[in-house]
Design a binder for these strands. Sequence first.
DNA 1: AGGAGGATGACTAAACAG
DNA 2: CTGTTTAGTCATCCTCCT
Length: 404
Amino acid sequence: MSVLVDLIYTSEASEDGYYGNFSDHEDNSYGGRKEKRKRFEGAEEGSRGPLDSRSDEPMPLPNPMVGFNLPNQKLRSVDRCLPSKAIGPPFYYYENVAIAPKGVWTMISRFLYDIQPEFVDSRFLCAAARKRGYIHNLPIKNRSPLLPLPPKTIFEAFHRTKKWWPTWDPRKQLNCLLTNVAKPKLMEQIHHALAKCEGPPPRRVQKYVLETCREGSLVWVGLNKVAHLEPNEMEYLLGFPKDHTRGISMTDRYKSLGNSFHVDTVAYHLSVLRDMFPHGMNVLSLFSGIGGAEVALHRLGIRMKTVVSVEISEVNRFVLRSWWDQTQTGTLIEIADVQSLTSERLESCIKRIGGFDLVIGGSPCNNLAGRNRFHRDGLDGEHSSLFYHYARILDTVKSIMDRM
DNA sequence: AGGAGGATGACTAAACAG
DNA sequence: CTGTTTAGTCATCCTCCT
């Protein structure tokens, strides 16, 4: 099960201790592999990274994306030191797609108190890939994963598919689960292309089928028959309880799940909070979606006294509200629009509940994501620019709580 | 709900220049 | 032989129109 990770670790990461290690320098710069850095994020001309005043090092995007460390692996845990202004309260946790247009992560980092992102591909914890960057001021020692450990291969996750899996399909894991699923016509075309072959299909057909399967994360469900995952299967891979999104339209379920956190990855990062808040915590959840952060905290056994959740989508609020009513005893306060969360409103809220322990959220990625063919406009895009509200709200919360 | 619709960034191996 | 450039490969929390 851990062979994949071990291989990558031993073949790639052990040479110079590069991966997950940037503790050797006071300025948090990474060690080694200089020749690779210039191609990464923040390396383009005219873009000044948050650390530029102290260093010319651009922000690297490590490959493989293993973050600071991984569960049950012997990667050397890093010993990072945070900028003093980044240190809480509150703790904060921000997420977005790792492969964003150039300069985006440098900008995000600059607005979030110069903390370097932790890039993690969830394929190390899950049977599906999910490349994301996380900026947070949480401790990174003594993390622990959710148990039981989720399946890391397609066969472990979906036993029945093995019966129909052709030998020439080498996939062990799925690509990123997206907001749209493949349409029936594609599946039909694949079936048709394979059915008319006698014996193993020719190279050309294999290539076409494999490309299509990879693109849509399709699995084998019958003889020459592929299909996209069902919503409950996506819920399972992403770490949500069964039927979490049930009750809304299929299109909405796929959209919301595709936009969601990977619960196990986030929970791994948040696990350090468990011992720090034995009596529970107050959470400000921005861009909550279907409640990936809340589910992660719940599965960690962390009690949520009050959650102020901001989510624009009515169906997502419905999903979170129904889950909350079934599982929680604390208070859920729902707000639709981040723009309506003014500093006055924040202040009265903070005074009422006694402050937030955690500000968590991932702002809209659709103007950053490579899939967007029409409006990949970067951080200033129509939706992705809402990131600045995350920064604004975090800044406000920090300054209010500083005065307390 | 179905169908159509490229671009960007990262990686890798090959080609290239010194 | 070594470091650099180039071209091919791959993946991507998607939007618009019907």
